[in-house]
Amino acid sequence: MSNTTLRKIDFSFLRAVELTAVLLIAMMGAAVTTLMPLLVGAYSDSGSFTSVQVGWLTSADVAGILLASTSAYVWSRRVNWRLVTLISLSVFILCNYLSTITSEFEPLLLVRFFAGVACGCAYALSLCALGDHKNTDKAFGALVTIQVLFGTIGFWLLPEITAQQGFSGIFHFFNLCLIPALILSALTYPSNSKTQSHTVMSIDGSYYAAALIFFGVVAYYFAQGTVWAYLERIGVVANLSGVEIGQILAVGFALSALGSLLSGKCVAMFGRNAGLWATAVIQLPCLLLLYNMDSQHAFWIYAITTIIYQVMWSFVVPIMMAIFNDIDKSGKLIALCIAAFKVGLVVGPPVAAVVVSIGHINDVIWLGGIAIVVSIVLCIVANNHLKQRISSHNVSA
């Protein structure tokens, strides 16, 4: 075998290692959001925290990720990716370990916030690396696939693990997935291929429409911070076992990929507004059934409604992101879409916790339903404003 052939094999192997490392990190960047129902359940079952404290603990990781991912707009193209990633992953792993030996609220809250910051730094750089990939469609497609696989495995296995180990089991599971990412990143990691030419946020489009879609996405993810975060608790109140809930959520998470596949076809045939309305029309009855669920038929009602709910979540997010992207011709606004996701997820759990503390667990369902309606209306108004702007531009041209 010639030296040229060997060099090609070595290069291909290194590229495969790089991509695997990036995908594992990006997978873990969404881990807290993905497994949020189990995290809320584990915190609650520990008996160490009040319902309000559970809400704040759930938001702590997301708040750290929000801070890191938002600030990454400024620093992501100015740092040594490999060095920052190795430091971030090491801190993330350390914080997860400290979380397994910490049971007091204030120290755990602080540890989880720093875990979120470390996670967010590594996550932001992994998304930049995937964006620089020569085939971004395949790269982001692989990301969705590995995140769905992670969520499916997590929902299937963790209920039994947390029943034995409490919330520590979740953080051990995180580290089990993070250590391979750290090892691979130490071997090789992509380098920044683009220089950052801007530090000031400005867009080439309507700030009014940008504000509408931003707060529309915030409202939708506020609903997820209420309904999704407390979905495990809702099942427990309906007398479902932790294993049954985990299996149902695992199946729903696996099937949710169908939503993103159907989204593009629906938009092509009927337009974005139709897709947005369809989300509200389908998700709201699911929430209504969930709210009025009786123990006799709880298993099937919970299974059917949560699976459909997850499919429609995957269905509507690409539509929201497309509106987000098209409002700004410069392509910079889309960077704040992740921030909008996280703002909703930071605010949702504490608000839901307060509602639960003064009412009933099912009250988070109507809270989430209102947020979904607000979100869909804001997104439709933003999309209509975008269409009018495009139409007027075409006329003037």
Rank of each mutant, 00 (worst) to 15 (best):
A339L: 04
N292P: 02
S241A: 15
Q164W: 05
L19S: 08
D61H: 13
N239M: 04
R272P: 01
V351P: 11
S193P: 01
L157C: 12
I9S: 14
D294G: 15
A118E: 06
V395P: 00
A303M: 07
Y291Q: 15
M312N: 03
Y43N: 06
T195L: 10
M321N: 15
C177S: 15
S44C: 01
S76N: 15
F341K: 12
S48T: 10
L287N: 07
N80D: 14
V377G: 06
G29I: 09
A163N: 11
S206T: 09
K134D: 13
P285M: 03
V354D: 12
L83M: 14
A298L: 14
V148A: 06
Y302W: 00
V200E: 07
I183W: 05
F11E: 04
V74K: 10
A335M: 08
A181W: 02
I234G: 00
A397K: 11
S12M: 05
L182H: 04
I307E: 08
G264V: 04
L378I: 02
P107F: 01
L108T: 03
L35Q: 15
A274S: 13
M321C: 11
G275S: 12
F171L: 10
L212T: 07
S191W: 01
L261E: 07
A219V: 07
G131A: 09
P180N: 11
V54W: 00
F155E: 00
I323Y: 00
L125H: 06
F49W: 01
R78P: 15
P285T: 03
A163L: 09
I183S: 12
A118M: 12
L89R: 08
L261Y: 12
L289F: 13
P180T: 15
A211N: 12
Y43T: 12
V52K: 06
Y208R: 15
L255I: 02
T20I: 07
D45E: 07
A257Y: 00
Y302F: 12
A60N: 14
L240A: 09
A122K: 08
I101A: 13
L184I: 08
